[in-house]
Design a protein around this nucleic acid. Structure first.
Lengths: 153, 153
DNA sequence: TATTGTTATACTCTATAACTATA
DNA sequence: TATAGTTATAGAGTATAACAATA
């Protein structure tokens, strides 16, 4: 028999989050925020926020990539990328060059300084992630990333 | 031997995302956004955005919970919860009642209408998640949620 | 003195409309 | 006619400071 519903108002001492914790979206968001929190701290040295980092990393690994390709890859909107790209260029981390076949577009290239910075930043990012996921074994971490990719890729 | 670096500018036909895809934060964020996208569509019927849903669900499952407890549980800031709570109250989904022991706080309670709506909304949320994670087996989904919780809990 | 809830406000992030130059 | 990039702007989300009421 279920317990009778209390008629007297009662203070909650421990919050029951069991339903929310069954949800993939809830848990994915919590992990995302947990990583971002540490990311912002550690990557402040490089003056790179998560999106800056993703964009710069893609430029390093894809010399000549266009803004349009960055947008569709990362799910960004073109107007929101303009300032970001210009800021990276102003810092001397990337350079716009004429696109070889499309006169409307620019090919984005990392400078030597950009490549150097991102080499360090990527090591730092990978390292801080290991720190955040410290409760997971190496195998569990690989499994987690594999399953996450399987959801959206 | 590695291939020599091309001196001629070349257009990128397929974007290499392999580095980013090794990152837990990147993948968690992508999954989070993928779920939110479908969530916003499906839950528009209930006029519940992700945070509204989380708050209302916690109130249903924790009658008498305070704003302060909602904030610390969900990682929200008190000022940002005020309007949200008032909107739910205005819609007749929740009610503020005096807190039994703390005169500063209010105990939040779902109304019959709120309980009814959230019963449907939770079914819809669970259902849409299964849809988003359709590429995962039931076992994989359980594993994914377990590993995500292990990261931040 | 510390905490709950609130107001006002600022900052960041994301989204929409419209324009230009080129395809 | 469609697309890449841009500008301007609007909206949503998140953050800080300061206050009244109560602990």
């Amino acid at each position: 028999m279920p317990t009778a519903i209390s008629t007297r108002p009662v203070a909650i001492d421990e919050v029951d989050t069991r339903y929310l914790e069954t949800l993939l979206g809830y848990n994915a968001r919590r992990v995302s925020l947990a990583v971002i929190e540490v990311f912002l701290q550690r990557m402040a040295d490089y003056k790179l926020r998560p999106v800056d980092f993703s964009v710069a990393s893609l430029i390093v690994h894809n010399p000549g990539i266009t803004s349009r390709q960055l947008c569709s890859t990362l799910g960004l909107l073109p107007p929101n990328l303009v300032g970001l790209i210009n800021a990276l260029e102003k810092r001397g981390l990337i350079r716009k060059r004429p696109h070889p076949t499309d006169g409307r577009a620019s090919g984005l290239h990392a400078t030597a300084a950009g490549i150097s910075l991102m080499k360090e930043a990527e090591v730092a990012a990978t390292s801080l992630e290991a720190e955040v996921a410290t409760r997971l074994t190496a195998t569990e971490r690989v499994t987690l990333v594999r399953l996450l990719k399987k959801v959206y890729l």
